[in-house]
Write a protein that binds this DNA or RNA. Structure first.
Length: 253
DNA sequence: ATGGCCATGCACCATGGA
């Protein structure tokens, strides 16, 4: 079973690349972030023709998430129950016996801003909800664009990024809180090339210079961990013309 | 040698992303 997460930074722009990538890789289930599409504009037909069913939760201009799957997706839910949120950031669904949460974590802009406070309260609510969710779903995946670089090893220039957004101790504590619920950073279950990133700024030739951050993650529960056989970042789509600034993260189990 | 972005909406610029 091949699972992946990808922040596509506009599905309207990236749809051909997503379809091509699905065909090239044979991915079974893909969660998308930053679709930037209202649900009435979601390209269900294009995915259906490629052999995938899809569920979406979007809004205009910003955010938006979706799940694309060969196998049936059931019990679809949106965002965090009990957390009043006007932004479309989470879609959860069951595929086979695995509960999958696809999430687009808030960016947070900068410490001390309203957006940072929103990120903190969103993360706190997420932890509460995932903790409950784990009680009912032993095989759980939490995947997406976390907008958190968990350690300095996930940052190309930790000195320049020290205490900057995506790298603050507060954000990293929240990442560890998720791990403490009994989740595992699948990427770190395996030997990885040094300087592995999942996002590179569009500016400054960052991709060519490999100046990036690892902020897209796949966390797996204990029950899944034993069946996971690989996890990697696929840099190939970042080399496309008009790429997303993020690369997909792939899990095999 | 240096510096270089991209998507959206509505509008030819401002905002957000990370």
């Amino acid at each position: 079973m091949k699972f992946a997460t990808w922040n596509v930074n506009s599905l309207s722009v990236r749809l051909p690349q997503v379809l091509q990538w699905l065909a090239d890789t044979g991915t079974d289930t893909l969660v998308l972030q930053e679709t930037k599409l209202t649900d009435d504009k979601f390209p269900h037909d294009a995915f259906a023709q490629a052999g995938y069913q899809s569920a979406c939760f979007g809004q205009k201009t910003y955010n938006g998430v979706a799940i694309i799957s060969r196998e049936a997706v059931t019990d679809i839910s949106h965002n965090i129950p009990g957390f009043d949120d006007h932004q479309a950031r989470i879609i959860a669904a069951t595929v086979g016996d695995v509960r999958m949460i696809g999430a687009y974590f808030p960016n947070g802009q900068a410490p001390g801003t309203d957006k940072f406070e929103y990120k903190m309260s969103w993360l706190q609510a997420l932890e509460r909800w995932v903790k409950e969710h784990l009680e009912n779903h032993s095989k759980l995946i939490l995947a997406g664009d976390f907008n958190i670089a968990p350690t300095d090893d996930d940052v190309y220039d930790p000195v320049a990024w020290k205490d900057q957004i995506l790298c603050t101790p507060q954000e990293r504590t929240h990442f560890q809180n998720l791990i403490a619920l009994g989740l595992h950073d699948a990427f770190r279950l395996f030997e990885q090339p040094p300087k592995s990133w999942s996002w590179w700024d569009y500016r400054n030739l960052a991709f060519r210079k490999n100046q990036g951050l690892r902020i897209d993650h796949i966390l797996v529960s204990d029950a899944l961990k034993s069946t996971v056989c690989a996890c990697s970042i696929d840099k190939q789509p970042r080399k496309n013309e008009r790429p997303s600034d993020h690369a997909p993260v792939v899990l095999e189990f």
